[in-house]
Design a protein around this nucleic acid. Structure first.
Lengths: 197, 197, 197, 197
DNA sequence: TATGAATGAGGTTTCATTCAT
DNA sequence: TATGAATGAAACCTCATTCAT
């Protein structure tokens, strides 16, 4: 579906890579480990990916595409900035919760690699931020959120908060649950954005 | 022993390392680059540090010690949780603002390395989080902040927000200024923590 | 069996190989490049040739067989060592002139590979040298050429001269024309072999 | 003398490389073989040479520089084109005779590599050819050699003859001796270049 | 303390060859 | 016959670390 002859092989390699990267980090992961985890020969990897870095990039792009898709689906039909924000935060934590390995890779390796990926496809990340910024901007237009905050900066702030909590969870030092993290993040940010009484 | 024999050489190496790590990331930085940047021979590095990783660790510990020291100094005498939070956020951005290279290293490499540093000294980071948690906890005790939020989780949330804004700034995509980032972060979090009217 | 089952496919592969080898040299040529140039699948190559080296060997053997055939045809009926030598040199340059790619492969790769081909079929090259040696030997027997030169060594000398000029031409640094190269080589060697006045 | 700290290490590597290349050819030689033959660690090679190809290039340049130096020394004070040609041919075979390994590398690998070295330093080879061309040109100016031959082409022809004989000798199929090869080459080419009686 | 030449283990990647279809 | 996806061995090169000076 994705590429060509055996579409599941590409996916198997990506899934294996996520596990291996989460375990050892990108630079301490060996291509041969990924190959073994995916039950393919080392050389096979290079039929589907240009290089080891390309695997990492593909993990990002694929994952971001998927979570963005999920967010857009979920937001469809939700009216009101507050409910949209609520939905967004819930979907974010739900997605993260499905795979702590993926969460760790996205969370940890994304930053490390942002440097060398600046030239490549960071647009997926940009699109994700843009969704948050749009929700907040809409809320400001509706008069629900205060206008004297820069919506793009707040989007970034919120993303940082979500990401940090996801990281904490993925690293296994779970304070409580993702559900509570979800509720409390929403609580802080919604109230933080409301006009003063 | 090496700690203060020729204290400036150890510092020169650390400063050089911060620049080199910020430029290339930890794994793409070569020890010999650091040596050249510090104007010492490759071998000299190993008189002051056990390994390349030890340099990174030292950068963290030193930097965290310094920023923690600054925070404690600044907080001294400030009364009230809101003012303390305000102080904390301001000092954080001020420290970051002093060196975008250092900000980038702390921000980016910290995460990547948290993995292999789990066994080593992450306590500095923990102490930093603890300061935030304490301020919020105090606010809850004073009745200024709501009690139904977990102070350690909010601390983490706030740190994530600060860190993300610092990263954006360090990476050069500065929305506006650190000053504004400071004001708006404070605005969101303080109001977000207040009891509902 | 494969020899003439679909004779044009074997030939297409050989022709493609000549082009690819001439372009990149044997060791920098990939089997898949040859396959693409011949419009066949990679695996198909191995239905006609045992290995990559076997392709090179076949290029040699085929080419030498053809040029030897041409020489023997042309020499048929020519009488006198001088005219035979003249014919030989002309036919050599004519053959080379038909394909600079082939000339380059024979000229350049032959040497490189002589090493690993020592065990295989170098007899084609030996037969080619033998023709020259025979012509010169005949000339010595006829009393046209001096007897105090070893005919096999002179044969080699002449081959070296022809080969070097062919190489220069094939590499594109053509002094003038193959015609002139032909005339001047003949001039030098014929006179060089005559008895002193 | 040549490079820096331990000038003999660079030479040891070059000498080892000549032996290994002569034995296996460039592409079938492994860097680790050269290292072992030179009694250094693999990595040490890369302190003195940029790459495996750089070693080969250095072998050429060094060797050509040396033989050119020898030729110029020997030709100094020799008067008359015929004696100069005689000297040149003798020195060529003498040089070749000193190391059949070197002869083989120069002779065999030079051609193979001429392709990828076209961009690099082929000037040494050009200078060598120029010496022969100059001698012949002088002879033409003196009226000793015929004028209706292109001196640069004849130079190439002569080089081809010398090279082929050297190759035969280096490959171990020695007809007789380099001495005789020397005498007979001189005999053919000198007489070949004389004006007709 | 300081140097920097030397080390050598180890990984990414290539590519000739195979084989199931 | 023909295909081309898959294999996996093998090599160039890098670079953290050491140690003789």
């Amino acid at each position: 579906m994705a590429q060509n002859a055996k579409p599941d092989k590409r996916r198997r390699i990506l899934d294996a890579a996520v596990e291996v990267f989460a375990q050892n980090g990108f630079y301490n992961s060996k291509v041969s480990q990924i190959a073994r985890a995916a039950s393919v020969a080392d050389g096979t990897i290079y039929l589907y990916f240009k290089s080891k870095e390309d695997i990492l990039l593909s993990v990002f792009v694929d994952s971001m595409d998927e979570i963005i898709g999920r967010q857009l689906d979920a937001l469809q039909g939700v009216v009101g900035a507050i409910d949209q924000l609520s939905t967004f935060i819930r979907v974010h934590f739900q997605s993260v919760g499905q795979s702590s390995a993926l969460a760790e890779v996205i969370t940890v390796e994304l930053r490390q690699s942002a440097k060398f990926m600046r030239n490549t496809d960071m647009s997926a990340f940009g699109r994700y931020l843009a969704i948050i910024a749009r929700i907040i901007g809409d809320g400001q237009d509706e008069g629900v959120f205060v206008r004297d905050l820069n919506n793009r900066r707040v989007a970034r702030m919120l993303f940082g908060a979500l990401d940090e909590l996801a990281l904490e969870w993925a690293m296994g030092q779970r304070l409580t649950s993702l559900d509570e993290a979800c509720a409390q993040t929403l609580r802080v940010f919604v109230q933080g954005l409301l006009p003063r009484a």
